[in-house]
Amino acid sequence: MIQFKNDFMTVFQSSLFQTTCTVIEGKDFVLVVDPNWLPTEIEEIQTFIAQIQGKKELFLLFTHGDFDHIIAYKAFPGAKVIGSKGLQQHPNKQQKVNLIHQFDNDYYIKRPYPIAFPEVDLVVEEDGQQIVIGDTTITFYLSPGHTHDGLFTIIEPLGIWIAGDYLSDFELPFIYDSAKAYVETLQKAVRVLETHTVSVLVPGHGQTTTSKEKMKRRIQNSQEYLESLISAVMKEDLEKMASMEKEMPFPSSFTKQCHEENIAIIRKEFLK
C-alpha cells in the first residue's frame, strides 16, 4: 500500500513489519529503495515504476543487507545497484539468501524472479560520498550499529533523508552490529539534520515524517533508550533491563530475542 506521496516521492509500506520501500522520481532517473516483501506488494511497486520510468535510468539503493530489504533485488533487472562497501563485501551473503528461501518456504511463497544477494555497481566507501545525476545530488553517510553495512542517504534539492533501519516512529533500536557504533551513528544523525535541509524522513520501518521536530525527537528517543540500556547493563540492573524489554512495541518472541541481543552486545562492548 502507499503510505506517503508527494510530487517526487512515493513510499510503499508492506503489511509485514511496516517495512517501507521508497520510489523517487527525478528528472533523469528513478531510484527504488529496499523493495519488499510479498510478491503482490512487489508487483505493485513494479507496476508503478513502469508507469513513471519511461527512458529514465533505474537505480536500486539498498540501505543494508538484511534479508527483508534485499528480498526483491532481482525483480528489477537492468537497474544499477547502490550500496555500501560493507554490503558489497558482506561476509554472510549466502546466509541472507538462505533466510529469504526459508521465509518463502515457510509460507509457500513463489516468486517470479530469482533470489540473490545484490551485486553492487556504485559502492559507497566513506561519509560525504556523492552521486550527481542531472540536477540531483545524492549524499551518503555510513551508518553502522544496527548492521555493519548501513547507509544514510540524503537526496537534494528534494530534501529527502532515507534512514534505513533507524529513526522509526515506533521501533526501538535493534543492535545487530555494535552498540558503540549505534551511538555514534545517532550522533551523525544529529549532524545530518544540522548540515542538510531535510524536509522528509523515511525510516526502514514505520511512518514517514515531514516534521523537523519529530525527526529530532526520534533521534533523542533512540539516544535515551540506548543510554538507559547501557547504564542498566553496566550496573547489572536486572529489574531495569526487564522493564525495558516491555517497552518494545508489538511484544513477541522476535522482540524478546532482539532485546536479549542488545544486552549481549552491550555487555561484550562495555564490560570487557
Rank of each mutant, 00 (worst) to 15 (best):
E126F: 06
T19W: 00
P39F: 12
H64V: 11
E41G: 05
A116C: 03
V23D: 05
G204V: 10
S243R: 13
H196W: 01
M241H: 00
T47E: 07
L99Q: 12
L58P: 02
G134E: 10
D34R: 13
E224M: 14
E224F: 12
T22S: 15
F62K: 06
T10W: 14
N105Y: 11
Q89V: 03
K272D: 00
A50S: 11
F76M: 13
K268S: 09
F152Q: 05
E119S: 05
K272L: 09
K93L: 00
E184Y: 09
H146A: 12
P77E: 15
E125R: 15
Q130Y: 03
Q207D: 10
H69W: 07
G204T: 01
Q220S: 07
I82G: 00
F254H: 06
K85H: 13
S14G: 12
E260L: 10
I131S: 01
I219C: 02
D7V: 06
F170W: 15
F62C: 02
L151I: 06
I131H: 03
T19D: 09
L142C: 08
L172H: 03
V124I: 13
K110S: 13
E43F: 15
G65F: 05
E41W: 05
N92W: 13
V202C: 11
T210P: 04
V200G: 14
G206Q: 05
T147P: 01
F4M: 13
P173W: 01
G159D: 08
P249M: 07
F12G: 08
F103I: 09
K180D: 11
L38R: 05
I219F: 02
E43H: 15
S15P: 01
T47K: 02
T10N: 14
G204P: 01
A189G: 08
P39I: 03
Y166M: 10
F140D: 14
N98S: 11
E247I: 04
I42A: 02
R267E: 09
I133Y: 01
H69N: 07
I52W: 01
V132C: 09
E184K: 15
T40H: 10
E247H: 05
G78S: 00
I175A: 09
Q3F: 00
L201V: 08
E236I: 02
S253V: 15
D68I: 10
K55V: 15
K85R: 15
Q88H: 06
Y225E: 00
E224V: 08
Y182E: 03
C21I: 11
G83T: 05
E245T: 06
K235D: 15
E239I: 06
P112S: 09
I45R: 00
G26V: 01
Q220K: 09
E184P: 11
C21N: 06
V97E: 13
D68W: 13
E126P: 04
V132Y: 02
M244G: 01
P112Q: 07
Q95C: 04
N105G: 15
N105E: 14
F48N: 03
F12S: 05
Y113E: 08
P173G: 01
I100T: 10
H196L: 05
N98E: 10
F48A: 07
K212V: 15
N262V: 01
M244S: 04
Y108R: 14
L151E: 04
F103S: 11
M244F: 05
E260V: 04
W37R: 04
P144C: 02
L186H: 03
T139Y: 01
H64I: 07
Q89T: 12
Y182V: 04
W161H: 12
